[in-house]
């Protein structure tokens, strides 16, 4: 696809703005900057409270890296599906676009399934948000990330329906593009969470002397 074609597709929307940038896209980027602060605050809360649990289960007892690696991989691939969907939508290949959007929905749902399994499994091991500070920070942070993914899935499902009906087309591909930005952002938040919560603290042991602190 040539460069001019891209511009023409957006012509309607951008012709009235002072910078020539799309309003919706600009707002989505601003929102993402805002969400950076949201997740930033939660991740720092997690890091500050890391290793300060007074009672178990501790991260090393519950976190399961192989399973989370699979779910991380699935979320990464959903980003790939997302970007392909956008590409085909701009190329006016309706069926492929719809299929890839559905792929995003499917992969996102599988990811949520993993998260549901994980939460359930942790609860069986005796870790709930009320158990200790690790449980508190872990569940609220990953839970809110899951909430973001869920919203993304619903949004994608709506767009898939639109693409199927032919109302989402190359000339309003911006709607899919901003949804895609949101989706990729959720993905990069997970990249950080996977590193910070899972890989870095998966071997965290009880803090030294914690038995004494309780008394």
């Amino acid at each position: 696809m040539s460069e001019t074609a891209v511009i023409n597709n957006h012509q309607d929307e951008i012709e009235n703005t002072s910078t020539g940038l799309s309003n919706k896209k600009l707002m989505m980027w601003l929102f993402l900057a805002s969400d950076v602060m949201f997740f930033g605050a939660f991740i720092s809360t997690y890091l500050i409270y890391r290793g300060k649990s007074l009672v178990g289960p501790y991260p090393s007892e519950v976190l399961d890296i192989p399973i989370t690696t699979v779910s991380t991989f699935i979320l990464l691939m959903s980003s790939l599906a997302m970007v392909l969907a956008l590409h085909y939508l701009k190329e006016n290949e309706k069926n492929k676009a719809t299929l890839w959007i559905l792929g995003v929905v499917l992969l996102g749902t599988i990811f949520m399934g993993f998260q549901f399994y994980e939460f359930n499994h942790f609860a069986h091991l005796g870790l709930t948000p009320r158990t200790n500070i690790f449980g508190t920070t872990f569940f609220i942070l990953t839970g809110l990330h899951g909430g973001h993914v869920t919203i993304g899935i619903l949004w994608m499902a709506f767009l898939a329906y639109g693409s199927h009906k032919g109302t989402l087309r190359s000339d309003n591909a911006i709607d899919l593009e901003i949804a895609g930005l949101y989706w990729h952002f959720v993905d990069i938040v997970w990249i950080i969470i996977f590193t910070v919560i899972y890989l870095i603290s998966a071997n965290d042991m009880p803090p030294a002397g914690s038995e004494l602190l309780i008394h």
Partner: peptide
Amino acid sequence: TDRIYGTHFFNSLGGGD
């Protein structure tokens, strides 16, 4: 969540600060 669900973000008995 501290108030409604009993988490420990600001509860020093649960390790919070």
